[in-house]
Computed example of a mutant assay.
Amino acid sequence: MHRVTVKRKEHFNAAHRLHNPNWTDEKNEEVFDKCNNPNWHGHNYEVIVSLTGEVDPETGYVYDMKKLSDLIKSQVLNRFDHKNLNLDTEEFKNLNPTAENIVKVIYDLLRDKIEEKYEMKITLYETERNFVEYPA
């Protein structure tokens, strides 16, 4: 049997503020610059979920893409789209919503719903030129 990677791309819009409450305002501004704006700022995020596995000889699928789309919608988009990540989500109440932390949260949310037999990687674009992957 052969292994294939399938990918599903979705997008969501969200606001956030990068801020460490243990630091002074000056240090937060020095480290996070404009991303520390107390009035928030937003991104048009793109998320790509990659699953690698064996092709099922009966369906020809690695993973049902409709099922994957529905999982991303229920676990990620409904939770984060058009939200202020700092204020509106439990996941980031006490976790700085950097791209690095967001991608790990998304991974954990989906990993709980997708069988371990599938290798999974999440790619998150914060901007056209800035993106992160987990696991690395």
Rank of each mutant, 00 (worst) to 15 (best):
V4Q: 06
V4F: 11
H11P: 00
A14H: 08
H16E: 09
N20E: 13
P21T: 04
N22E: 14
N22Y: 03
E26Y: 00
E26V: 00
K27V: 14
K27Y: 10
K27C: 00
E29N: 15
D33A: 09
K34C: 02
N37R: 08
N39R: 12
N44S: 15
N44D: 15
E46V: 07
T52C: 12
T52P: 10
E54S: 05
E54M: 07
V55M: 14
D56R: 02
P57V: 10
E58R: 09
E58T: 08
T59G: 05
G60F: 04
G60I: 09
Y61L: 15
Y61A: 05
V62R: 01
V62M: 04
D64R: 03
M65V: 14
K66L: 15
Q75T: 01
Q75S: 12
V76G: 10
V76Q: 13
N78E: 15
H82R: 13
H82P: 05
K83D: 07
K83M: 15
T89K: 07
E90H: 08
F92W: 04
K93P: 00
K93Y: 03
N94Y: 12
N96P: 01
N96F: 04
P97I: 13
A99F: 01
E100M: 08
K104R: 15
K104N: 05
Y107V: 03
Y107R: 06
Y107S: 02
D108N: 15
D108C: 08
L109V: 02
D112F: 00
D112C: 00
K113S: 12
I114C: 11
I114T: 07
E115M: 04
E115C: 00
Y118E: 07
E119F: 06
E119H: 02
K121G: 02
Y125D: 02
T127R: 05
R129P: 00
R129L: 07
Y134N: 08
Y134I: 13
Y134K: 05
P135E: 08
P135Y: 12
P135K: 13
A136T: 06
